[in-house]
């Protein structure tokens, strides 16, 4: 069991969770992920390590409540536990001085892009982060990025904040303005695919952090197969980052729908539970210290 030391909501349905995992914190490099199981019978889900703190021996994860497991995880508070946390997994990002680096994050993808942006800034790059969200409250981590000396261009679909429109419009402008050495993209598959099409004509090195379905995360099952340059790769051990110009995004998008019916059904099951039975699902990972309640 892994103790949660901090938990807070940073956007609707998005939680920041800090968990004690000293060995993982020590090894973590930008671009890597962990496999998490929330409860004793839970499924294994991959989550990017957003930050690690070797002094406190903890790692930071961001989770968006979109399915059953992520919904349950979002209900955990400081003092509760995660049943299992294994990692760090995957190859680290290729961090070096590219001159100007653009990091594009869409929705929760910004949490994946965040550690990469920080590492690029530390390596001496001028880093521009294009952060997209449906509306203002879904633009994640802007302050944290700014604190790292990163230029942030927020974009919203509805124009409620920053630029109105897609991240790709902003990206095209940044590219036009000057020498972009590399683009990192993390977010919904169509967004990553669109980013690759913006940079392809200009031959700008573009790296996408892929998010296929995984089970073990150690190369054992091959469930996370993706095609890159016509070759099959395992995203968990060969990635998760690949040359975006070579990735078959269409295949990735399709494979990610494999269990949509099951996922919807399990989510409905969860929603149909009354509060008491719902809470019982988390009984095993609830800590001794209950979240503070105002009486």
């Amino acid at each position: 069991m892994f103790l949660i030391t901090e938990a807070e909501s940073i956007a609707p349905d998005v939680r920041r969770i800090v968990v004690e995992a000293p060995k993982i914190a020590k090894k973590h490099e930008a671009g890597q992920f962990v496999i998490v199981r929330v409860t004793p019978d839970g499924e294994r889900i991959p989550l990017t390590i957003a930050e690690s703190n070797t002094a406190s021996g903890s790692i930071t994860l961001f989770v968006q409540a979109i399915g059953r497991t992520t919904t349950l995880m979002s209900e955990l508070e400081a003092g509760d536990y995660l049943e299992d946390v294994a990692g760090p997994l995957g190859r680290a990002s290729d961090i070096k001085d590219y001159g100007t680096a653009v990091v594009v994050g869409g929705g929760l993808g910004t949490a994946i892009a965040y550690p990469i942006a920080c590492a690029l800034a530390e390596a001496g790059n001028r880093v521009v982060a294009i952060v997209g969200g449906r509306s203002r409250e879904y633009v994640l981590l802007e302050d944290q990025l700014v604190t790292q000396g990163i230029e942030v261009i927020p974009c919203t679909d509805d124009g409620s904040y920053g630029r109105e429109g897609f991240v790709t419009d902003a990206l095209a402008e940044v590219i036009d303005a000057g020498d972009v050495g590399v683009v990192f993209a993390a977010g919904p598959v169509p967004m990553m695919s669109a980013v690759a099409e913006v940079t392809r004509p200009k031959s700008i090195e573009t790296i996408a952090s892929l998010n296929p379905i995984m089970v073990d995360g150690t190369g054992m099952c091959g469930g996370c197969r993706v095609e890159v340059g016509g070759e099959t790769k395992f995203a968990c051990v060969d990635g998760p980052e690949f040359d975006a110009h070579q990735v078959d995004f269409h295949l990735l998008q399709r494979r990610n729908t494999s269990y949509r019916a099951f996922e919807a059904e399990r989510m409905r099951d969860l929603e149909s539970l009354d509060a008491e039975h719902h809470e019982q699902l988390l009984a095993d990972v609830r800590g001794a210290c209950e979240p503070e309640t105002v009486t």
Binding site: V215, D216, C221, G223, E227, L251, R255, F262, R266
Partner: peptide
């Protein structure tokens, strides 16, 4: 890489280790 193609490792891991054969399984 079509949907529906499993390695034996993946299929058996889902069913055996993750208990996908049980009614209340969390893993599909």
């Amino acid at each position: 890489n079509l949907i529906g193609v499993y390695s034996a490792n993946e299929f058996l891991t889902r069913v055996n280790l993750m208990g996908a054969y049980r009614e209340d399984a969390e893993t599909p």
